[in-house]
Design a protein around this nucleic acid. Structure first.
Length: 507
RNA sequence: GAUCUGGUAGCUCAGUCGGUAGAGCAAUACACUUUUAAUGUAUGGGCCCUGGGUUCGAGUCCCAGCCGGAUCACCA
């Protein structure tokens, strides 16, 4: 606790002492028998049927106090909204002794305190549904003033707290004071629940796989390293769960999924947090064409669940998630946006195209990375409406099955929305001999200087050797999906506690 | 990592040319028994992010650092 207290914090501590001296416990232990939420009272009450709400008990945090002398109007916020309490001195303390009124109500209450109230519901002269208090209980004292944010009838906000550092570091206060922030996170939960329901009702099984892994596999990224003391071995935080889910397909599950918290020790910006969530699922006996259809259905279902329509606002754009989505191969995409057909070019020719288009290249880049660079620089950002980009070069897809009819390509698609990758899926490589070769190719890339190439996972190869049925799998970035579906420009606004540099509290 | 930008009361923010630190809300006190973001009157509240420098004098100018944000590069 910061030893330097502000004037207002000191005053609140003095009030605490005064309350205790008067025999009022500022932090009572007993449960408080809440019977109603603010929103239910406001939605359900009508003066003609007042009996139904003649005896309610609510609890929440004090958001405003209007002191009228012998009458107080107090607004409290519970988890569902805000309701006003009408507190009249002579109703709470009808006798001669008004001392507790002075100590508890007049001097003892502050913005931010939790109180409980029993009473009956009525409508004030000004038309606000309120609770006429018959009993008021202090449930928890607040010692630190929250930011004061006010709203008028038109929804205009005064003194809104917008400082990102405050919002992200003290999300607890941000949530109290900014109801729209809370709404975003409720929507995020709804999005995740919608996906769960979608997958569960189709027979998918939710599983948990290791977060601590001896070999960080399934993606190309720099991992966080750590150490297991009892085993005295290095361990890594997972960068992807792909290889574990495929092991489960080997084991006989035919549709598994996991919301995987992944950790990557790389830069952070408004679209990247060091830990982030990816939904991956793998389905046996399916291919990437099937996967495209299910993906379209899923995105359409999510948009409808959140917004009641497939047309979703994102910045100044409207993204329409109505299935089916457009499909275009990566070579056709490049041809469309540059006029150049790179589909049959070798590495030197691709390098020449990069020079012609002023794209930075590195000597370590192989054919796959060059093609990816050309696509990224010329085409990727042009796909605003949901589009499947299909059939990637084999060099950049070491876990993907070779294309059934196009040599040098694999059966892979990425879903582009708003010019960004939202999902990545393939027909999975289940040929153990081919898989070993692909790993070895990665090793060669690594030797050539590509520090993102994959490690060989011998146990995964052993699993594939037992036989894995033909399978299709997908990974969907959940944080990014939330950003797109909830119209947020920063990943920090869809993460409750985005990573921040540790705060220095002094000493 | 590079560039730009910000940090002043509990909160939102002003602060001119370098010359005694400001407003609204919040707080304290008094008045008011159905109020409406924010009733009236009075009062208190400051490590101007930190450390150096320039100057008679620094919230203000210079340098370095700390903590954010934006843009760019790389990754989802």
């Amino acid at each position: 606790m910061n030893p330097i207290l502000s004037e207002q914090e000191l005053i609140r501590r003095e009030k605490l002492t005064e309350l205790e001296a008067a025999g009022i416990d500022p932090y009572p232990a007993a449960l408080y028998p809440v019977s109603h939420y603010s929103a239910d009272i406001k939605a359900g009450f009508s003066p003609d049927d007042a009996a139904q709400f003649a005896n309610v008990c609510v609890a929440g945090r004090i958001m405003s106090i209007n002191d009228k002398g012998k009458v107080f109007f107090i607004k409290i916020q519970d988890s569902r909204g805000i309701i006003q309490l009408y507190v009249r001195r002579d109703d709470l303390y009808p006798g001669e002794d008004k001392q507790e009124w002075d100590v508890l109500i007049k001097r003892g209450l502050d913005l931010g305190d939790f109180i409980g109230c029993k009473g009956y519901v009525f409508v004030t002269k000004t038309g606000e549904t309120s609770i006429h208090a018959q009993n008021l209980t202090l449930l928890a004292k607040s010692l630190k003033p929250l930011p004061v944010v006010k709203r008028d009838e038109d929804g205009h906000v005064y003194d809104e707290v917008t400082d990102p550092e405050f919002k992200y570091r003290q999300r607890y206060a941000d949530l109290v004071v900014n109801p729209d922030v809370k709404k975003i996170f409720l929507q995020r939960t709804k999005l995740v629940n919608t996906i769960r329901q979608f997958l569960n009702e189709r027979g998918a099984i939710e599983v948990d796989t290791p977060v601590l892994q001896p070999i960080p596999g399934g993606a190309t990224a720099r991992p966080f390293g750590t150490h297991h003391n009892a085993l005295d071995v290095p361990m890594f935080m997972r960068i992807a769960n792909e290889l574990y889910l495929k092991r489960l397909i080997v084991g006989g599950f035919d549709w598994v999924y996991e919301f995987s918290r992944n950790f990557r020790n790389e830069g952070m910006d408004r679209t990247h947090n060091p830990e982030f969530t990816v939904l991956e699922w793998y389905t046996a006996y399916k291919d990437y064409y099937w996967m495209m259809e299910v993906t379209e259905q899923l995105f359409e279902t999510i948009a409808l669940a959140l917004h009641g329509t497939t047309a979703v606002k994102l910045g100044d754009k409207i993204i329409d998630y109505k299935a089916p989505f457009k499909r275009v191969t990566i070579f056709d995409a490049v041809k469309e946006h540059t006029g150049i057909d790179i589909s049959h070019m070798n590495e030197d020719e691709l390098r020449a195209v990069c020079g012609q288009l002023h794209i930075d290249v590195h000597a370590s880049m192989g054919k796959g990375k060059l093609i990816d660079a050309i696509f990224g620089a010329t085409s990727e950002h042009k796909y605003i409406q949901p589009t499947f980009i299909m059939d990637y070069p084999i060099e950049m897809s070491p876990l993907t099955k070779k294309h059934r009819s196009k040599p040098g390509l694999v059966e892979r698609f990425e879903l582009m929305v708003n010019g960004k990758e939202l999902a990545n899926a393939y027909t999975e490589l289940n040929d153990p001999i081919d898989q070993r070769q692909r790993f070895e190719d990665q090793l060669r890339l690594m030797e050539r200087g590509d520090d993102e190439a994959m490690f060989i996972d011998q146990d995964f190869l052993r699993a594939l050797s037992y036989g894995m049925p033909p399978t299709s799998g997908i990974g969907i970035g959940i944080d990014r999906l939330c950003m797109f579906m909830l119209d947020q420009v920063s990943i920090q606004d869809v993460l409750l506690f985005p990573m921040m540099r540790p705060e220095n509290f002094g000493e």
